[in-house]
Nucleic acid binder design. Sequence first.
DNA 1: CGGTACATGTAATCTGTTACATGATTCA
DNA 2: TGAATCATGTAACAGATTACATGTACCG
Lengths: 189, 189
Amino acid sequence: MHTMSLSHAILTALLDEDLTGYALAKQFDVSLGFFWQASHQQIYRELKGLHLAGRVNVEEVPQHGKPDKRVYSLTTLGRDMLESWIVDSTRARGAKDELFIKLFNVGSVPVKQITLAIEQRKAEHTRKLELYRKIEMRNYTSPLTLPDRKKGVYLSLLAGIRQEQTALIWCDDALDLLTTVRSNPKVKG
Amino acid sequence: MHTMSLSHAILTALLDEDLTGYALAKQFDVSLGFFWQASHQQIYRELKGLHLAGRVNVEEVPQHGKPDKRVYSLTTLGRDMLESWIVDSTRARGAKDELFIKLFNVGSVPVKQITLAIEQRKAEHTRKLELYRKIEMRNYTSPLTLPDRKKGVYLSLLAGIRQEQTALIWCDDALDLLTTVRSNPKVKG
DNA sequence: CGGTACATGTAATCTGTTACATGATTCA
DNA sequence: TGAATCATGTAACAGATTACATGTACCG
């Protein structure tokens, strides 16, 4: 019945350790965040909801000089919710990529504006691929001997690496083909 | 400044032909819709906005038996808006895939529930790949001799094909690795 | 008689983004 | 002195999803 994947992502992050909203937001910038992004505003909002629903506990930790911490941990209810969600079928969240909209404009606007967008994208893919590779070399050189707990994380990373590689090759092929396009657009009547 | 990519996707679809909201919604189920999905509710709402802003014209076509049609076409303003948007940098819309959240749960829930999700995903990728291949064979057997107008569309299709292929290979590798996971979860204390 | 295609919409709710707000501490 | 990090939030708005609503025509 329910979508709300952000809440499940949060519960998942809490499997390993108890965390504050702030720390969760940090996690969502790396690791799980490579595949599911969320801002701190979203996370704070969601945590409130999860707490109201009894999926997480909060422990308020007073601090000096800094605002008090609110450390969240999973409840049994939260664990159960997570596990039953995993059984539900994963809905394919439709890919949304502005680059494709731009590609559909080839022939109507100057090609250069589109090749530029592809070049930008290429740089991003390169950056990400390097980052993933670095993580791989640091932590996942020997997948088969990994503890079970880490195998899913490794597989996510592997998916990321291959996606970036595929995308990079495509960028080059796209740039090649687009050099065959006359740069002056012809607008249909 | 502006995001609102749906409006640009709509304007793009109107480059080739004038369309009703209904027909646009159909287009968004195929073609551009492979890379940018939208429901008819979103489209009708957006068309209203675009019309108010002078980006599209409407022609009301009375019909017998059916509700009257509202056929939309691009205005010069709309064309200009589209072209200037293409120059703006393409923001990377963070990928959101529930499957990765599930993968991060390997080791905490029975693996079988996760391999099942991967099997489902594999079936989807297979279906999509077949569909894309069919379209490719029908319309894009010779990319270099394609009219400019079609080259971007072809490149989108190519990206789709490669993504699905990459994903399929990953599914098999993931299933292989997950067979090495003890099926009984061990929940941390 | 039932289902699908045509054709348009409203309303409610949920998610996501952007901007604003506060305030101490540490590092350069 | 200024920027970054820690730490939490509110408010407004934009975008997406789900449910509801209407009504004819055509095909089997």
